[in-house]
Design a protein around this nucleic acid. Sequence first.
DNA 1: ATAAACCGTAGTCTATAGTCTATAGTCAAG
DNA 2: CTTGACTATAGACTATAGACTACGGTTTAT
Lengths: 113, 113
Amino acid sequence: MKIGELSRRTSVSRDTIRLYERLGMLNEISRPFEWNTYKDYGEANVKRIRCIKYMQRFSFKLKEIKEVFDAKDANPNQCVDKSNIFKSKLQVIEQEIGELNKTRDALIDIINH
Amino acid sequence: MKIGELSRRTSVSRDTIRLYERLGMLNEISRPFEWNTYKDYGEANVKRIRCIKYMQRFSFKLKEIKEVFDAKDANPNQCVDKSNIFKSKLQVIEQEIGELNKTRDALIDIINH
DNA sequence: ATAAACCGTAGTCTATAGTCTATAGTCAAG
DNA sequence: CTTGACTATAGACTATAGACTACGGTTTAT
């Protein structure tokens, strides 16, 4: 499919898709036409982009998501250990919550001093 | 004092001090020498920089801190209402905590699915 | 046949808070 | 008198995740 269709099907802008492509996060991209320079984005990219959006909800960086994709690509048969990935992200989130709680308490202290 | 001393006394790098200066967050800066271009940073800047570092701990942006300084400069006699400033920042922090908590819960859900 | 919609590349811009580099002049110690 | 430390200015670079622009070519609908 062309980028427009991919954009429509994922509700992600062309610009953003092109960014993901530049970052090497998509696959199965070809240029099947001789008379123009249009690209063809394979069906798998719909899933990829949905996966990106899903992981972003948990504050994964694009770089981190790309690493997961790369691991999968390097070893297509091996199952990616999602549990560990999410667990380590959970630790990060909990640490951030801890920091923010400290900041909040300090702020409350200031206000009530 | 020259920038080096200011840097030493505040533990803030020269570059960072120059950034604050470019952003108009410092005051009492003069060029008292005719034979060179060295600047003289007034004593007040030690406090200013400490104040910046202090407010940054509560996730105030430089821009916000500058606004506080500007308000103070515009009206030196009037006391800045710190309480309100910190109270509104507290709301932001608590909202962030709320968001992070949601993310954390969703992550835990995934892990234990 | 022409306009609208689409596609490609490349580059710039946003916010944030600095850091680093280059260039050039100055000061203090040996 | 030279070396090292210090200073000034300006501009480029870092990470992050896109948005937006310009320019030129293509496809589709009227």
